[in-house]
Computed example of a mutant assay.
Amino acid sequence: MKKITAFAPATVANVSCGFDILGFAIDQLGDRVTVALNDTQELKLADIQGDGGKLPFEAKKNTCSVAIRAMLDHLGSDQGMDIYLEKGLPLGSGMGSSAASAAAALVAANTLLGTPFSKEELVPFAMEAEKIACGAGHADNVAPSLMGGFVLIRDYNPLDLIKLPVPLGLHCTLLHPHLELNTADSRSVLKKQISLKDSTVQSGNIAGLIAGLFLQDFQLISRSLKDVIAEPSRALLIPGFYELRESIQSIGALGSGISGSGPTIFVLSPDKEIAIMAGKVSEQIFEKMGLDVDVYISEVNDKGAYVLE
């Protein structure tokens, strides 16, 4: 094979209390990347669609080529490739847009080279791409986009990834108001220090959330979806955030939070019916504020990135 197309899904990072260490993948929504071998020793961005002309064609600045270059350097290979990116995710949305591009590019290129790496082994290369996208090589988007499901990053040095179980019936509603927040701006509002009390509360919530996933205990998941570190600062950047939270709790949703650095908000529900209701309630809230919002209803994608053709 000399040409392969791969798909990588959108992701929700942080998942409230799991700041920088937890994320999960969404179904259907994501990016496609086609990679073709060429006879040069260069990585070339041949075409980019769906980005409104905002993404760079320069290989050192595009997450697709940066991720592939990191993989090729690890292999000691100078194989040239042409890269065709089709964006299905809005930029600056908090849905892991840069991560999905890198993940799809890596899966396509890895397959072209005979699959020398597992999807988990591709994560460090995708993290290199995240550095140029948002200034930090976090794995809470790239790991679930590649591996699927819920992924816990227990440690970064060395990288220690744990794939967690997904309770039967769990659904996610993604709400993307038509705002754009840069990751760097969202990180700039965070407190530089946290109290011992907040650290203790956050630790209990992330432990409770992980236990709830293993036990398939929706009530425990609901009680644990609370972030006392990043959310209080970031929520101020997203109109209607707290009104939405109160509304979705009244219809039986498990909880909500900011997806990644925002402005997308995620809602977890115990079944599809409640997830759909959460979307309708949220549309009404944003409509009152004069904001358009895109609503996506999805199960958790346990497959991750994969080859299309």
Rank of each mutant, 00 (worst) to 15 (best):
N182T: 15
V267S: 05
P232K: 11
L209H: 03
D39S: 15
T183C: 09
N14V: 13
S98T: 04
P9T: 04
L179E: 08
I48T: 09
G114L: 07
F266N: 11
M71A: 03
I83K: 03
G279Q: 08
L220I: 07
L291F: 13
L106G: 06
D27I: 00
L29H: 09
A70Q: 03
N205C: 15
P124M: 07
N141Y: 05
E246R: 14
L37N: 03
E58I: 15
A253F: 01
V123I: 07
H178A: 14
M289E: 13
T11F: 10
V142K: 02
A136L: 14
Y242I: 01
A25W: 01
R154A: 15
L215K: 14
L43V: 11
D82C: 00
K163H: 06
F241H: 09
R234F: 08
K44D: 00
G23F: 11
M277H: 15
D294F: 02
N141I: 07
S188A: 13
R234K: 11
N157I: 12
G279V: 10
L308C: 08
V228F: 12
M71D: 01
L43N: 07
S261W: 02
A136V: 15
S256P: 00
H138R: 01
L37R: 13
M289Q: 15
G204S: 09
L106M: 11
I276R: 11
D73N: 09
L43E: 09
D82I: 00
G80D: 05
L72Y: 07
N62E: 10
D82S: 05
E243T: 12
L237H: 01
I48N: 08
A105Y: 06
V189R: 03
N157G: 04
S256W: 00
S97K: 10
A253M: 01
P144Y: 04
C172F: 12
A105E: 07
